[in-house]
Simulated assay, not measured.
Amino acid sequence: MFRTLLLAGMALVAAACSPPAAKVPLTSVAAVAPTAAQAVQDVRGIVEPCEQAMNRAGGHFDQLAASASPQAGARAAVGATKAACLTAFAALQKAHAPGAVRDACLSAVYTRETLADTAIQMLDGKAGALAVTTLRYKADDQSAASQACSTALATLGGREFAMVATPRQP
Rank of each mutant, 00 (worst) to 15 (best):
A68N: 09
G158T: 11
Q121E: 05
N55F: 01
V132P: 01
L92D: 05
E113V: 13
A68P: 00
A162Y: 09
A129N: 06
A53C: 03
R44S: 07
T166V: 15
K94A: 12
M54D: 06
M54I: 09
F89S: 05
Q52C: 06
Q93S: 12
G99P: 03
D103T: 13
T27N: 02
A145R: 10
E160P: 05
S143E: 13
C50P: 01
L115C: 05
A36S: 10
A91Q: 15
V101I: 07
Y110I: 15
H60N: 14
T81S: 04
A76G: 05
G79V: 11
A127W: 02
P49V: 15
C85P: 10
T118S: 09
S67A: 14
P25W: 06
T35A: 08
G158W: 11
T111H: 07
P34W: 00
V40T: 03
A148G: 00
T111K: 11
V47F: 03
A152T: 04
L86I: 15
K138A: 11
L64M: 04
G99V: 14
A83W: 07
Y137K: 14
A162T: 09
A80Q: 08
T81Q: 07
A108I: 11
T111C: 00
K82C: 05
A76D: 11
A31S: 13
A30I: 15
S146F: 04
P34T: 04
Q71S: 15
Q147M: 12
T35F: 01
A100M: 07
A80T: 07
A37S: 11
E160M: 01
G158I: 15
P25M: 07
P34K: 05
T87K: 09
R75K: 14
T118A: 02
P167M: 08
A84T: 08
A91V: 07
F89G: 02
L123D: 08
T114S: 06
Q63D: 06
A131F: 04
L123Q: 01
Q41M: 01
V40M: 00
R159F: 04
G58V: 14
T155C: 00
V132T: 15
P25E: 13
A145I: 10
C105P: 00
A90N: 05
T133D: 03
P34G: 08
T27R: 09
A31Q: 11
A68H: 04
D124R: 06
A139N: 09
D42W: 01
M163W: 03
S69I: 12
S143H: 10
R136M: 12
A72T: 10
A154Y: 09
Q121D: 08
K94D: 12
S69T: 15
V43G: 03
L92W: 06
A65L: 10
K82P: 00
K82H: 03
Q63M: 15
R136D: 02
L130F: 14
A74P: 06
A90F: 08
G158N: 10
Q52W: 00
A68V: 11
L26M: 15
S28N: 05
E160T: 09
A33R: 09
G59M: 14
K138E: 02
I46L: 01
S67I: 13
G125S: 06
E113I: 05
A91D: 06
A84E: 02
A84C: 02
D124E: 14
Q142I: 01
M163N: 07
P98H: 14
E48C: 06
